[in-house]
Design a protein around this nucleic acid. Sequence first.
DNA 1: ACACTAACCTGCAAGC
DNA 2: TGCTTGCAGGTTAGTG
Length: 268
Amino acid sequence: MPELPEVETTLRGIEPYISGHRVVQLRVKQSALRWPVTDGLDSIVNGQLVHAITRRAKYLILHLDQGSILIHLGMSGSLRITDGSQVWRKHDHIQMQMSSGFALRYHDPRRFGCWLWSTHEHSQLSKLGPEPLSDEFDGDLLYRLSRNRKTAVKPFIMNSATVVGVGNIYAAESLFRSGIRPDRIASKISIKRYQLLAKNIKSILSDAINQGGTTLRDFVNSDGEPGYFQQSLDVYGRGGQPCKVCNRNLKEIRLGQRSSVFCINCQR
DNA sequence: ACACTAACCTGCAAGC
DNA sequence: TGCTTGCAGGTTAGTG
């Protein structure tokens, strides 16, 4: 589920219940995630105040008195707020009980996410490119970084060293809206087209964040998964179906082991 | 430095 | 009905 808009929406949903409150208890039922949950995390964080929650790329960072917890939702993770007394569902792996009476529950069937403690900057964050919604990210940057790159443009924009937060869904959608084939070689795209692409990445991501906000009101004791696909997708998941613009059937290929759907007529 | 693959893990849908 | 196969929103470790 989690692309950047979902992570941002999760941050906004949980923030009021966690930030400014103290950790009373942390329970880890399953520590085998992408990396093992930091050993002894319970005793480390117990009693510490959560000062703030921030997001970097698709990571959430809980800032505590002595350090921070780096959380990633992987492919299937989710966070929700409970009153701390709810039964543990299958794949509920971690619960952080706060002094407020609310608790943060981490659910992740595929266990590709992480919960890591560090007293310094987390190493996972050290080589990340700019945030897509920041001024630092623009078409000029894409053009500059793409010189001499022989990779296809889709994996190029999904590479977190280029720009963070562009996952498979939004990569496909922003390339469609920009009229660029996903398999076009990155170095062969003009600066003008990269400017259009950067603009579309920004608008698609911020639209999705705004939509996520409307579908995620019920972060407390909610059973449903965070609303995700409310928006209409033009190409993602629509291989073989007609293009919404020209009606030709959309083509599906694989790039870097990821399915990539596009219109051979609208995207060049 | 770059490009590409395999790997982590479970659930689900499609095909036989 | 049941088994097998392939694929799924992400990221990194390893290979050439």
